[in-house]
Amino acid sequence: MTISTPAATSAPNGARRRPGFHFPTGKVSFYGFCSLSYIFLLSPLVVVVGASLHRGTRYTVVKFPPEDLSLYWYTQIPDAHWEALTLSFGLAFMASMLACVVGIPAALGLVRSNIPLKGLFSSIFRAPLQIPSIVTGVAFLQMYYLFGDLTGLYVNGTFAGLLLGHLFVGIPYVVGTVGAVLQRFDTRLEEAAQSLGAGRITTFRRVTLPVIMPGVYAGGLYAFMVSFGDVPISIFLSAPGFVTFPVELFYGMENDFNPSVLASSTLVILFSLGLLLLMQRIVGLENLLRSGGGS
């Protein structure tokens, strides 16, 4: 592994450099090494999109690079996939919206109040990210069973049951991103609005909300994507015939393999790309990352 810093090779006064032409071996191998990660991360996506365009005969249906270009498999997407996609989309949309409804007040309260043990409160909000998703899935399933035994209302295998589980993991993202924006918030803006006669609600709607919006978008987007791609929670909380798209694919992979899943997967890839581009347009990629999705 040869590594160099780009700055080192381009620095004109870098020491110990022989004069004359110098092939930047270090630089090239450094960038080469970095490109391996990109190949590793992105090639499966390229392969799925490519292979979905290959028509093929019965025994050579999956092929990359595609030779027999056609959109045939896009017409063969089974109804079960469309239903699963609709469920996944509705679930992710509702979960991210509710995560904002719960998360924005939480972030405001955490950043602006003077309650004691603030660190403890914020770590409780962050806790769902520390618990492995599979544990959350098992725990919610058992909670639903107990709740059902007590009240006769079983929510496992229903939209509400799935939604609650997805909301649980979505909230911390919104709290994290909105909290990060609020910490940089200049409160004098609000004071200015209020001294000019704006009420508390007007101030919030016209000043606070627009400023924290990048954080809301970023957190909402994270909550959406986490819900949209989740398997370990949904696999416990869904029921036969009522599954999210990733779970449908998960089971499909264990059973029969039909190339139409590549077509529906490609649609999901394109949808995710589109959503990311849209968000990038609205708030900018820098904002999406800076507001701390890793928290």
Binding site: L45, V47, V48, L249, V268, L288
Partner: peptide, 14 residues
Amino acid sequence: VISTFITIVIKVFG
């Protein structure tokens, strides 16, 4: 970011 946003199930297909 794109690669982390797309569900792992699809990447496994690839």
